[in-house]
Amino acid sequence: MSEAALDSQTAKKVIADKKESLWARLVSHRTSFLFLAPFFLLFLVFTVIPVLTAAGLSLTYYNILEPPRWVGLENYKQLFLEDDIFLKAIGNTLTFAVFTGPLGYCMSFILAWLISNIPQKYRFFFTLCFYTPAIASSVAMSVVWLYLFSGDRYGLINHWMIKIGVFDEPWLWLQDVKTIMPVIILVSLWTSMGTGFLAFLAGLSNVPTDLYEAGVIDGVRYRWQELWYITLPSIKPQLLFGAVLTIVSSLQVYDIAMSLAGFPSTLYAGHTIMTHLYDYAFVRFEMGYAAAIAVVLFLLMVGLNRIIFNLLGERD
């Protein structure tokens, strides 16, 4: 028998063994898979199928009124070679993510760490104070911040700046291209104490005290040593969870930018990827082009999350 025939038989045997092994594992763990079935079904219906549908629509011209018409990669070509506003939106979104992502993440952890070190009876009050901005509606928050950054003399910041002599005339905070993005970043940081903050607080509260006692025996003397050698390794899953949430929320900034800077903002200074997606999906009804924007945003999120998993995920 020739070597090619032997190799073919060996390959078939390996494939058959793998199929038999997979089926054996499915049968032996059928109860576990049965309990996981509802999640897999929901994940398939609300995540996998929409992503595949968006990827398919991104290769078509679809305006809702007419059937989708195949255009291939034309939408992506237009996005990156002809759509200057989209490129500006990518720059604005990445600028926003670079500032709000690390800063919001560090602020959430530091505040959670500080709260975890105060007496138990006071923790609820401080947790509520820092978490409340995250659960307040964007409309309510925008009303408060629009009053603070109003471009006339009645705006609170302009009023005090003129009163103390810093400004001679009101500054158009939400119309000037130099200050639109900084204001959006500031407001987003104020509302960044969300689910990630609660996850950090829960993780810090559940670190076993035995580890700190063992650390003292092993030579840990300072709080920063406890933090670095005991606390951070113990809450690695929460750190990963918070990082993923931070990336997703940073790249999906939309409502705050729309509420503060308007649509469209001055010279598109507050225009983000999600705002661009909203424009083409629900204003122009060019769903194929909007799907291409969504796919680019999805790939950007997946890439950044992959980096985070490599940094914070368990190697084993």
Rank of each mutant, 00 (worst) to 15 (best):
4 A>D: 03
6 L>V: 03
8 S>H: 01
9 Q>E: 09
12 K>A: 11
15 I>H: 00
16 A>R: 01
16 A>C: 02
19 K>L: 11
21 S>L: 11
22 L>F: 13
32 S>Y: 14
34 L>C: 10
35 F>M: 12
38 P>S: 02
42 L>P: 00
44 L>K: 00
46 F>L: 02
46 F>N: 02
47 T>I: 03
49 I>F: 04
50 P>I: 01
53 T>W: 07
62 Y>A: 01
63 N>F: 00
65 L>M: 14
71 V>G: 05
72 G>P: 11
77 K>D: 10
91 G>S: 10
92 N>P: 09
94 L>S: 03
94 L>A: 07
95 T>S: 14
96 F>P: 12
102 P>Q: 08
102 P>W: 10
102 P>S: 12
105 Y>F: 15
107 M>E: 12
111 L>W: 05
112 A>I: 07
118 I>G: 05
121 K>R: 13
121 K>F: 11
124 F>E: 13
125 F>V: 15
126 F>L: 14
131 Y>D: 04
135 I>L: 12
136 A>S: 15
138 S>F: 15
138 S>A: 14
138 S>Y: 14
141 M>R: 13
142 S>C: 09
151 G>T: 10
156 L>M: 15
162 I>Q: 15
164 I>H: 04
166 V>E: 09
168 D>M: 11
169 E>V: 15
173 W>T: 06
176 D>F: 11
177 V>F: 02
184 I>R: 04
187 V>H: 07
192 S>F: 12
195 T>C: 05
196 G>S: 08
200 F>E: 04
203 G>F: 07
204 L>W: 08
204 L>P: 03
205 S>G: 13
210 D>F: 01
210 D>Y: 02
211 L>C: 05
213 E>S: 13
216 V>Y: 14
216 V>K: 14
217 I>L: 15
221 R>W: 05
222 Y>C: 05
226 E>P: 00
229 Y>I: 00
230 I>N: 02
240 L>P: 09
252 Q>V: 00
253 V>M: 12
255 D>I: 07
257 A>Q: 05
260 L>N: 04
262 G>E: 07
262 G>K: 12
265 S>P: 10
269 A>M: 05
277 L>I: 13
278 Y>A: 09
279 D>F: 15
282 F>A: 09
284 R>W: 13
284 R>M: 14
290 A>P: 06
292 A>G: 06
295 V>A: 03
297 L>W: 04
303 G>P: 11
306 R>H: 09
307 I>Y: 08
307 I>G: 06
308 I>R: 06
311 L>R: 11
314 E>I: 00
316 D>H: 09
